[in-house]
Structure formats: structure tokens, C-alpha cells
Design a protein around this nucleic acid. Structure first.
Length: 270
DNA sequence: CAATTGACCTGCAGGC
DNA sequence: TGCCTGCAGGTCAATT
């Protein structure tokens, strides 16, 4: 599932392909990709030059001249493909044609993802709601973010207004690396635990970016060139329930967490 | 304000 | 073979 490392991997490809290029046309095949009522029509992108592609949390933001920001979210199953023609896929939802011949295809099996456009001022307010990015978060930022919270630590990490970019895979991985249980009250961490968790987040996310992200068994995430990311071989708990913990050999446990599941070591996460 | 829960959506695995 | 159920989970709206 696309989280920060997967979105960052896609961002780098999009930036390389799009920065400095003019958008010739945008074609929407499934109108559900643009479901925000206050967003501008995607047609306003035609004729604009993309100046850069940024990321905040799991959101992709393409700045264009004319103070227009093209915002994308992959949600569960969104994928981007770059090529010289639209991708051949039953899940093709939207297409952007760039001057020079590059075609950006947006695929989305589960139709949760979004493409929409905001004026720059609106985009600034939108970005301001996102917490500090987890790949660069400091212990002081994390302490402020978690202070006073009584809900589960994992829920806080996955809440994008508290920390940006973390979802189910990397919250499980960072909590394992920091030796912390997912159901600790978020505000109960002491200074050493907070430092450990901030360091674990940075390390796990940076290593995952270096590997091009995690392509899980279902292959719902692939890079923009259609190739998988290779971080799955470094996973310690996600997709490893029942296997021995690499630190203490206790079988990795699994519990329900909201609409999904959490995996952890019941012995060395406290 | 903070926490919790359901809705959204599709494809696949597993059970009978 | 085929139907049914459960599961995967990011974000937002509604509720407590």
C-alpha cells in the first residue's frame, strides 16, 4: 500500500518526467478521481508548465506556473505509469499528456485515489493540516505531536494530522524497531522511548525509500516504471505473522486494528 | 477538542 | 464448479 516511501519513489519519477514540461491535455476516464466539490476543473492544467513535483506525507503536489497546484493521492491501489502512450490496463482512470510526448497514466484498481486541482493559496491551507514528515521527524517534533494523547500509539502514528506519511506497514515496522507496543497510550512515552521511535521512523522510511518502497504480495504498489520496490525483504513484522521475531524468536503476533490488522512481537515490544 | 467507527471500493483467497 | 465471506487499508464524515 502506498505510504511515504512508495509515494516518494513515485514523486522522484514524476518530477524527473514533468518538471519544466507543459501539460497539453488531461483526460478523465473515471470521474471519481476528482470527487472534491471545491476543487477546480482539471482542465485548468492544460497549457500550464509544471515547475516541480513535491510530496507532503502521502500527498503528491505538482506546482505549475499560474499558481495552480495539481494534487494526487494514490490511497490503497493507485499507480502511476510513465510512457509514450496511455498504459494498457483495465484500471486506467486518468491520463495526462505532456508536451514532448510523455504520457502520465493513472491506474487504480480500488478507485480510492484522487486527482484534483487547487489554487496555490488553497493548497497551502491543505498542506498545513499535515503533520511533520516521518522520514525527517525529530524527537522534539514527535514529543510535541504525541503529548497528552490517550489513544493507541499506532493510531497516532497513522493519523496524518499528527505525523505525515506513515500507514500500516511502516507503523508496524518502526514500532518493532523501537521496541514499543502498538497499543501503548500515545502520550505515555518517556524521553528515551520518544527518541528511539523518532530514530526508528527515520531509519525505516529512509531504507524503504532507498529500496524503492514495499511491493506486497498483492502488487497493488509498483513504481512508475512498472517494477516492484524491494523493501519487502527487509520487513520484520508486516506479512510475517507466525514467523520468529529476528531479535527474540517469539512468533510474530497479529491483532485487529480498525478495519485492518497490526503485527508485533509480544515479547520484545513493551 | 480527542477518540472511535463506518463508508468508500475491488480482487482474491479460503471454506463448503 | 461456484457461491459466499472475509480481508486488504487511507482518508473523511459522523458520532460519542
Amino acid at each position: 500500500m502506498p505510504e511515504l516511501p512508495e509515494v516518494e519513489t513515485v514523486r522522484r519519477s514524476l518530477h524527473d518526467a514533468m518538471a519544466g514540461r507543459r501539460v497539453a491535455a488531461v483526460e478523465i476516464l473515471d470521474t471519481r478521481v476528482r470527487r472534491r466539490p471545491t476543487a477546480l476543473a482539471l482542465d485548468v492544467l492544460a497549457g500550464r508548465v509544471v515547475t516541480r513535483v513535491r510530496r507532503r506525507g502521502k500527498w503528491l503536489l505538482a506546482d505549475t506556473d499560474g499558481a495552480i497546484v495539481w494534487i494526487m493521492h494514490l490511497r490503497m491501489s493507485g499507480q502511476v505509469r510513465l510512457g509514450d502512450s496511455p498504459a494498457a490496463s483495465p484500471h486506467l482512470r486518468a491520463i495526462a499528456y505532456l508536451d514532448g510526448g510523455t504520457v502520465v497514466s493513472y491506474l487504480d484498481q480500488r478507485r480510492f485515489g484522487e486527482w484534483f486541482v487547487l489554487a496555490a493559496g488553497e493548497a497551502g491551507a491543505f498542506e498545513a493540516r499535515i503533520g511533520p514528515d516521518a522520514d525527517t521527524i525529530t524527537a522534539a517534533q514527535l514529543r510535541r505531536a504525541l503529548a497528552g494523547r490517550t489513544g493507541a500509539l499506532k493510531a497516532a502514528l497513522c493519523n496524518q494530522t499528527i505525523v505525515g506519511g506513515v500507514g500500516n506497514i511502516y507503523s508496524d515496522e518502526a514500532l518493532w524497531r523501537a521496541g514499543l507496543r502498538w497499543d501503548r497510550p500515545a502520550g505515555s512515552l518517556d524521553a528515551a522511548e520518544t527518541r528511539r521511535l523518532a530514530a526508528a521512523l527515520r531509519t525505516v522510511l529512509r531504507r524503504a525509500i532507498a529500496a524503492g518502497g514495499t511491493s506486497a504480495r498483492d502488487k497493488l504498489y509498483l513504481r512508475a516504471d512498472g517494477e516492484p520496490g524491494w523493501f519487502a525483504v527487509e520487513l520484520e513484522v508486516y506479512q510475517r505473522e507466525g514467523e520468529p521475531c529476528s531479535r527474540c524468536a517469539t512468533p510474530i503476533a497479529r491483532q485487529r486494528f480498525g478495519a485492518s490488522a497490526t503485527r508485533y512481537c509480544p515479547t520484545c515490544q513493551r
